[in-house]
Nucleic acid binder design. Structure first.
Lengths: 202, 202
DNA sequence: GTATGAGTACTGTACCGTCCAGTTCCAAAG
DNA sequence: CTTTGGAACTGGACGGTACAGTACTCATAC
């Protein structure tokens, strides 16, 4: 059932995602998108009423995809033995997922336009950010219930975990455009973050 | 020596800072700035060759001002007695300084335009961000030398401290435009962050 | 009385969104 | 398999608007 219309729709979405992530909202023209999607501008406007609508759609779609990734990661084995090791591995996967160029670009895109699209910023914050934290918090709560961690406020703990891990690389990436983090650096951040977290919450 | 020219120069800088912080780079027109500064557009162009130059100047000037604020904060008494209390107070002041609307707006402004002005983003990162962290790290190192803290990598510790404190409120502010943090929330973040930090680094 | 600035008109460019005339796809009917 | 009708698409032109930067004339400060 991949009608021609559906194919075009998909091509436009894909092209728009690419260009928006790369050049920002203001830096992207509808002609750019149409050209990259190999589609006439008229067709773009047939599928998406205007630029704002198209932008909102691609942001939410990309957020959705990120959501499911986070959900997959947060499943942590609850055996006592290698707790620090497991947590470090989780931290490392978190770092990889959230410092991926696409994710960083999405963050930048939303922050940059949070004043023009306040609803979009809020929606991303709730769906793409707090939801991920809630998932992580649930995992920590499970560990706490098993007596492996000592936690009052699981959501706060999840925030601390994220902050310890992500503050450095995310800021670097936000400000210096394309930041290249070596694998070794990420390993180091993950180990150090997990260690501090356990020191406080075990 | 406040010549007329110098006064105009100052008025333009002030107006540009206000408008840029408020409406972003693309959202600000040179006419807006001229009007707010009560100055003709011609005069703006006499003092600043073009829009980009003006933007860079106001960003760096604002960064400079933030720098000195951080320097003032990071002075921590090194008496053993009330270490946790002192650290909590430092945390609280940090939070106040770095969640101030002006600072948040500056962050947004730089992140939003880091692709168009990569040098500016890098410069802010080094001057306004890493420099503040270095100051904080020096303070921690001093505490470590006195045997009050156990620290391998003072810069990493400073990053952890910042991440624990700022991850929540800064992200909320970045994404949801104008975030209003109550005093009570900030108190809570400061106390919790300082507690976790000490658990790991004392 | 001269340099500096105000006020304003103007040029050139970029881009959103629309319109239209001609073409291609696709599915159903013969 | 061929025809046919309508929907979707192309390509390009166009109106309208916003804005960076310049030019020019008249007023004002010092």
């Amino acid at each position: 059932m991949d009608s021609r219309s559906a194919r075009k729709h998909e091509a436009i979405l894909e092209a728009a995602t690419s260009v928006f992530l790369d050049k920002g909202y203001a830096g992207t023209s509808m002609d750019d998108i149409a050209k990259l999607a190999a589609v006439s501008k008229q067709t773009v406007y047939k599928h998406f009423s205007d630029k704002e609508k198209l932008f909102a759609d691609i942001v939410l779609a990309t957020t959705e995809r990120l959501d499911t990734t986070i959900d997959l990661l947060a499943d942590l084995p609850t055996d006592d033995a290698g707790l620090e090791e497991n947590l470090t591995r989780l931290a490392r996967q978190f770092l990889t997922a959230l410092t991926a160029p696409r994710v960083i670009q999405l963050r930048r895109l939303i922050i940059a336009n949070a004043d023009v699209f306040p609803d979009l910023g809020t929606e991303w914050y709730e769906r793409g950010f707090q939801r991920g934290l809630a998932t992580l918090a649930a995992t920590f709560q499970r560990l706490a219930d098993q007596g492996l961690l000592r936690i009052d406020d699981a959501l706060l703990a999840a925030n601390h975990f994220s902050g310890l891990l992500l503050w450095i690389p995310v800021n670097k990436a936000m400000f210096t455009g394309r930041a290249q983090h070596t694998e070794a650096e990420l390993d180091h951040y993950a180990a150090a973050g997990a260690r501090v977290f356990l020191a406080a919450y075990r």
